[in-house]
Each structure stands twice: as C-alpha cells, then as structure tokens.
Design a protein around this nucleic acid. Structure first.
Length: 442
RNA sequence: GCCCUGGUAGUAUAGUUAGGCCUAGUAUAGGCGGCUGUCGCCCGCCCGACCCGGGUUCAAAUCCCGGCCAGGGCGCCA
C-alpha cells in the first residue's frame, strides 16, 4: 500500500559518518547512512537533517538542480525513515557543520509510521512513561544517547582501573538456591523441578573467590523484589563489585575513591560532546574523600534538629539534611554492627561498631562495603544473631574451612553513579530498559 | 505496603477551585497547498481528545463513589 519504493542496500557502504563531514571535504563524493531527523521544506529548496550514531548532518536538495529521481525520493521522505545518500560535500558557511551534502543518488531502506508516538527532536517534551513505552524512539535524541555513551566511557575506565590494580573480572551465578542471604526480597524462578531465586548480589561468591584469586571484580545485573517507588530504585540494576584478600575497610575505600576519581577524569576528558549535550559539567573530585563516622553523622544531624537513635538506620529525610551539609562525595564509616549485614566485620576493639561503610553523594548512597568476617565461628554467630539459619549457608561456610584470609570489598550501583555523572535525576532515564515494580516492558 | 498528586487529540498543555458562556482553547506532530538558505523556518486550510463504570443534577471535562493507569514521597532496600 505504501507508495514509497523500498531500495536494497546492495553494494552501498558508508564512506563517512556525519561527524566526519566538514568544509575541508568540499567537492568530495561521500556515501552516508542514517535516519531522517527533520525536514525543512522551503519550496524550491529542501533541507534534510540526517542523524547517525555520531551526530547530525544536513542534506540540501535544490529542486531544480538535482536529478528528478532524487527530488522524487526526497519528497517522499518522512521523519525516521532510514536512508542512504550518495552525494557531494559542499562547503557552506550557512550549513550546521560548515558543510552540507548535495545528493546525487538516494536509497530508502525503511519507512516509519506517522505520526510518531513522541517528538524525536524533544521540542515537545514527553513524560517518562510515554518515553519508556517508545524507548528506542526516545533514544533517537542525542541527549539520551549521550547518557549511554557516558556509561560506556565510565565502564571502560572502571575496568581499566581495576585490571591495572590487579583485579580479575569474574562472573558469579544469577540463579541461586537460597533465599536466606537476608535483607531484601528475592524473585523466585522455576528451576526445573525446584524453586530457585535471582541473585540480589554476588556477595557470597565473590568472598569465596578471593580464596583463589585474591582480588576479583564483577560487573553485572542483580535483582531485588522490593516495592520501592522512588527515582533511585529499580528491581534490576547493574552493580560494580570488588572483593580483595588481605585488605581492610580503609584499603578498599581507597580503591573506591580512586576508581571514582579515575572514572570522573576519563568521562570529563572523553565525553566532552556528550556532557555538553546533557548540559552537565563534571568536576573531578579530589581524593581522599571526606570520612565521617556514623556517630559524627548523628551529632551533625542532632545539630540540625534531626534525631536518629543510635544504632538505627538513617532515614531518607535525615540523609537529605546530611546531603545539604556535605554536598559531594563522602564516606560514612564505623556503622553500628547491628545495622549492617551479617558478614560485615565488627571492630576488633569495639564489636558494637563495624568496619562497614557507605559511599554517599549528597544524600544518595552510591556504594556500600566493608571488611568481612573471615572467622567461621564468628560468621556463624552473626548469622544466628540475625535470625538466619547456618544450615542454608552450609556451602558458603565451607569456604571458611580452607584458610579464608582477612578480606574486604564493596558494591557500587552503576546507574546511581551514572546519575551523578550525567546530572539526570531519575534512575530510569539512565537505564535503557528499566525494570521496576510496575514496568516489565519494553 | 502506606500516603500525596494526577489522567483532556500522536505528544505537551488550557479549562476543573465557584457545573451551563466548551459546538472543549493553544502549541507541536500528522494531512493538503504555497514558499530557494532553513537550522524551534514561515504562511494558509484540514484532521484529531475529556481513562473506564456507576451516581447526583434540568444540565457533568468539571461534583460524588468504585475501578484501572501514571507520577512522586515514605517505608523497605546484600
């Protein structure tokens, strides 16, 4: 039914990306591929804005100066058609890149349904729900692509940093047998004839692995069945985790702050265009980051007339107050043992306090970690104290029979870090296809 | 799970407080026509919507009840 003739790609291959096109190529024949982003028709003159993964490019069609076949094709185009253009670069001060392409030949590979479910130029803003329903179209916007280019640069920097520091990248199971790690709720899965669960963290496995590799890291998705309804929680999220043998909390805090420092530096240096698109500036944080003890935090809150009973977790409202006092990266250390997970090591000189820490940015928790218990007896004691059965941790505890060394580690929420790096306020915008309590598609 | 706010064309909004003046306004997208230097092009014409169900009333987009959906906050969160 479509009157538009679909062409084959055939032997056409791209010679240039839009970012490569500039006045210095004046007169050169090029072949570009991409999607029609905008059309401005002035009558005898028609401008197409073509977008590819590197950016945008102007194609200019003079109705009376190019082949009628090209004119015909150009006039049948709609936003979001995917096309190829073979043409001549023309130096042109009035064009966006100082150059434009005058087409000699055009191929249309695919059409699009009109009207589109949202404005791909972003001028008419759409709500997050509408945007996520049409996510691949939403990602046509360069600002949105920029978020994921920043993510790529951040991951690249993080991997390079950890490798250089002697960590080996590992993969631990996503499908686990026990729902008894404690804390957050797990998603059950049908596993052949048994019930299994999606992993909420690599914690137990990465601890076991330091017995062999000493230093491991893992970057991967984890799952939590919490009914959290906020701009900073998802039920599926990517965690950057490390674990290290013969290390204490301070040792891995140093690794964490240096990693953040390096990631910020790399993103600031390599993502200039992306940050500009996002209208965001990265100030590379100086190390070391501030370290506040839990007790100090409570005192500071008290001075702001926010009372938190010692030993309790800090409520969100209190964190917001704290974030105003410390509007950057900082650690909270020396948490009460009872406020932390069973595997976090109590301090040798004061078991009420632990070697657990959180890395904060303003009021948001980016990472949490600590030194771990390496004594099997103590670990079993802590399990019972937290009401967990030692029986269901049997295979994990086994590792502690074979020379488990002192060790420490942390887990860092990638999306939360990305929110800081991009200035985006909703975690769902920094995840391609976010999963929360209510969203399971696309 | 609890609380708050909201649901009007493809998208974003006005109108809801004080029911009638709403035959539901505007922008953008879409369709048609015009226009040779646009870059949020411009100009003219056109298309297109009150979440669902029930109730109150002479009269409901507007008030009430129920449902569904969405946004946000809290709690929860190794």
């Amino acid at each position: 039914m479509s009157p538009v003739k679909i062409d084959k790609m055939g032997d056409w291959r791209r010679t240039h990306y839009s970012a490569d096109i500039g006045p210095e190529l004046d007169g050169q024949e090029v072949l570009v591929f991409g999607w029609v982003q905008e059309i401005r028709d002035l009558g005898g003159l028609r401008f197409l804005i073509l977008q590819d993964k590197t950016g945008q490019l102007q194609i200019t069609i003079h109705r009376h100066k190019v082949a009628s076949e090209v004119v015909e094709k150009a006039e049948s185009l709609q936003k979001q058609y995917s096309i190829g253009v073979k043409g001549t670069v023309k130096k042109m001060g009035k064009a966006p890149r100082g150059a434009e392409i005058v087409p000699n030949e055009m191929r249309i590979f695919s059409v699009s349904q009109q009207p589109l479910p949202l404005d791909i130029t972003g001028r008419t803003k759409a709500e997050i729900d509408v945007r996520l329903d049409a996510r691949v179209l939403d990602l046509r916007r360069e600002e949105n692509q920029a978020i994921f280019k920043v993510q790529h640069a951040a991951l690249e920097a993080a991997r390079a940093f950890l490798s250089k520091r002697g960590y080996i990248e590992v993969f631990t199971p996503r499908i686990i047998v026990s729902a008894t790690e404690g804390g957050s709720a797990l998603f059950p899965v049908a596993y052949f004839t048994r019930e299994a669960f999606l992993a909420q963290s690599p914690q137990l496995y990465k601890e076991q692995l330091i017995l062999d590799f000493e230093q491991v890291f893992e970057i991967g998705p984890f799952f939590r069945a919490e009914e959290s309804h906020t701009r900073r929680h998802l039920s599926e999220f990517i965690s950057v985790d490390i674990e290290q043998a013969f290390a204490n909390a301070e040792d891995v805090m140093k690794v964490l702050e240096e990693l953040i420092h390096n990631v910020c530096k790399a993103v600031a240096a390599n993502c200039e265009r992306e940050l500009e698109l996002l209208g965001h500036e990265i100030v590379v944080p100086e190390v070391p980051f501030k370290r506040l003890t839990y007790s100090k935090v409570l005192e500071e809150l008290e001075a702001e007339k926010v009372h938190v009973p010692w030993g309790e977790d800090i409520p969100t409202a209190a964190y917001r107050v704290l974030g105003k006092l410390h509007p950057y990266y900082y650690f909270i250390t020396d948490w009460p043992t009872k406020a932390k997970a069973f595997y976090i090591k109590p301090k040798d000189d004061n078991p009420e306090l632990s070697e657990g820490f959180d890395l904060m940015w303003h009021w948001i928790e980016l990472s949490s970690g600590g030194a771990r218990i390496h004594s099997k007896e103590l670990l079993m004691k802590r399990l019972s104290e937290q009401g967990l059965s030692t029986e269901s941790f049997k295979t994990h505890l086994q590792a502690f029979d074979y020379g488990m060394p002192p060790h420490a580690g942390w887990g860092l929420g990638l999306a939360r870090l990305l929110m800081v790096l991009t200035g985006v306020k909703n975690i769902r915008e920094v995840v391609l296809f976010p999963r929360d309590q209510f969203r399971l598609t696309p």
